[in-house]
Nucleic acid binder design. Sequence first.
DNA 1: CGCGGTGTTGATCGTAATCAACGGCTGTGG
DNA 2: CCACAGCCGTTGATTACGATCAACACCGCG
Lengths: 242, 242
Amino acid sequence: MDTDRKDIHNSDIPVLCRSCDARHKGMCGALDSAELVALSRHTRIVRHAAGDELAAESEPTESYANVMRGVVKLTKVLEDGRQQIVGLQFAPDFLGRLFARESAVTAEAASEVDLCRVPKGALERLVAANPRLEHRLMQQTLRELDEAREWMVTLGRKTAAEKVASFLYLIATHLDPSADANAKGRKFDLPLTRGDIADFLGLTLETVSRQLSRLRADKVIAITAVTRVEVADLERLRKRCG
Amino acid sequence: MDTDRKDIHNSDIPVLCRSCDARHKGMCGALDSAELVALSRHTRIVRHAAGDELAAESEPTESYANVMRGVVKLTKVLEDGRQQIVGLQFAPDFLGRLFARESAVTAEAASEVDLCRVPKGALERLVAANPRLEHRLMQQTLRELDEAREWMVTLGRKTAAEKVASFLYLIATHLDPSADANAKGRKFDLPLTRGDIADFLGLTLETVSRQLSRLRADKVIAITAVTRVEVADLERLRKRCG
DNA sequence: CGCGGTGTTGATCGTAATCAACGGCTGTGG
DNA sequence: CCACAGCCGTTGATTACGATCAACACCGCG
């Protein structure tokens, strides 16, 4: 009665993994059910509130994690406090720099977040034993590198207006709950405050606020609550990205 | 007579590989002499003049390469022509995005460059057969990601003066020919024109020129020829990086 | 010798930063 | 219940940094 026709081995895999996106789209897709069971003996699901620090820059890391729900921001700071967000991780992204002694970035929960934590050693042993897992993680790393480079263009060469439009476009295409890829518009909650968005775009929060107001005045977006944004026509937004 | 005590199998490896940095510090360090011989049957050393385009954005790539000498710049452009350099590759870096159908960036020789080209299929077969090779490439990809994120801070949060100082510091620590890591100063040739530096830093070439003049006036650097820079005290330069 | 390419320096302009005031929301305590 | 503090966001006034426009110096080269 309790069988799932999509996966004949479903009964063999851990309960928590069955509905987890990492099982299909994330790193766990590289594991067979036996490996998944073995790994799950070391994993722990933890919930963090928005604002919690998950890993600190130049602090030793003792565990890796998969993002199961929510958004994690990766930041770097200069001595005088200037801050830059260098990456955003969404479910089912892998969190942590494989093989690194210490983190090169600070990881912080941008929204409420559920993580599936794995002790450092356990995952590294599994990676050493299973090249397919490293291959998966390589694919994600390459994707992150592509995203970082794409963002360097935004930081270095776009105007404030284009930066804010690019940010909204990024969010709209990454965490639309309806997930209907060919829908013309999107509605979503911003996972970041105005100050966070500024740190992501290399702007001040006042400039972010002004540009959002401008996009609203120009009817490109509607802001129905401080964190709630509706994009009627995604293509019109994209045109503003430079 | 012709033996090299550092490597008893030296006579087994291809002539061209013996003096190649990639053999030790680059991806070829993951290969044994038999694999190296097999791979070398597919490789071809090619020399490119400064300015040559090595791979184009959104064009299919048919080969990978190792940089043996010189500097390669990776760039992205917006429709209206605004350009951003998103990475610099030095010997013995690997060139190309593994498994990708087409390049996400344009690769261009910044100086005269020697490449060791490998056909796409040949390398991918070798990667599939040898997990240690993928591991090596993973390490380089992670390093590139770290560098990209470090650079995002520079692009997003530093002033023009700090950006130029950061660029000089990067070059000084990456391609000093004397390679004496604990020397107090450095002398080097800039591998990029003022315009290229501007595209790397998200500035105009005029601003780059002004900031270089300012650093010279402040005696942080000496400019003995247009491309020739001498840094007497690396630490003083680092202090200007923000 | 004139020309194109590259780099420097000066004058002016414009965009985003900074400084400042205020509005709305939430939670707390009288 | 209301008063008030604290936080976040918006908007306005002014400033400043880097872009833009412009002139010229330098160098190799036909």
